[in-house]
């Protein structure tokens, strides 16, 4: 499949899943499931930082406009896109990234995915809850929300990859 079409489909799909389904699920304990950073993670490795940030910002604003958060998601996703190249560099494979491979769990392996996406998601969620609460006397509540939400969001992101990317691969072969 054409890679541009694939990314546009992921863009729209993740926004719809996030705003129409996941924003409505409320587990309690302040847990909030956010899977849309997966889109920014799966963009090509060779993409430059500035276009990456612009795409992330646009996606964040679209999600904001549908969940009455007025720029909160945009700000966190922007930070996610900004830190992505640094974290990628830190955990680069020995012969650098293969441009033919994608950065999902099947191509890059479990260990790489858990480390890289885990760190990025942690940064994203922490920034999000920090801004949302905006109070330093509730830092423990912020940390609790961040820790629990990251775990659940991470599990959902893995599930989404098994559901959509796996199938597509098998169909292609």
């Amino acid at each position: 499949m054409n890679s541009l079409v694939k990314h546009i489909a992921r863009f729209i799909g993740l926004i719809l899943i996030q705003t129409l389904v996941l924003n409505q699920i409320e587990i309690g304990l302040g847990i909030q499931i956010m899977v849309y950073p997966l889109f920014v993670l799966l963009l090509p490795v060779e993409m430059k930082v500035i276009p990456l940030m612009l795409v992330a910002f646009a996606m964040g604003l679209l999600i904001d406009s549908m969940s009455n958060t007025y720029g909160l998601h945009a700000s966190s996703l922007l930070l996610f896109a900004y830190t992505r190249p640094m974290i990628f560099k830190m955990f680069a494979p020995r012969d650098d990234y293969d441009p033919l491979l994608e950065t999902h769990i099947f191509d890059m392996g479990r260990a790489w995915f858990i480390r890289v996406f885990g760190i990025l998601l942690l940064i994203h969620h922490f920034w999000f809850f920090l801004l949302e609460m905006f109070r330093f006397d509730e830092i423990f509540y912020i940390l609790q929300k961040t820790a629990l939400s990251v775990i659940i969001s991470f599990i959902f992101c893995i599930l989404l990859q098994y559901l959509f990317i796996r199938n597509r691969k098998e169909n292609a072969i």
Partner: peptide, 24 residues
Amino acid sequence: GLQIVALTLYFTFLSYPRTQFLTT
């Protein structure tokens, strides 16, 4: 720059709902 735009939006919308754009 983009971060400033996002944060300005967030903190102004929180207190003054000035425009219709960007809401449900």
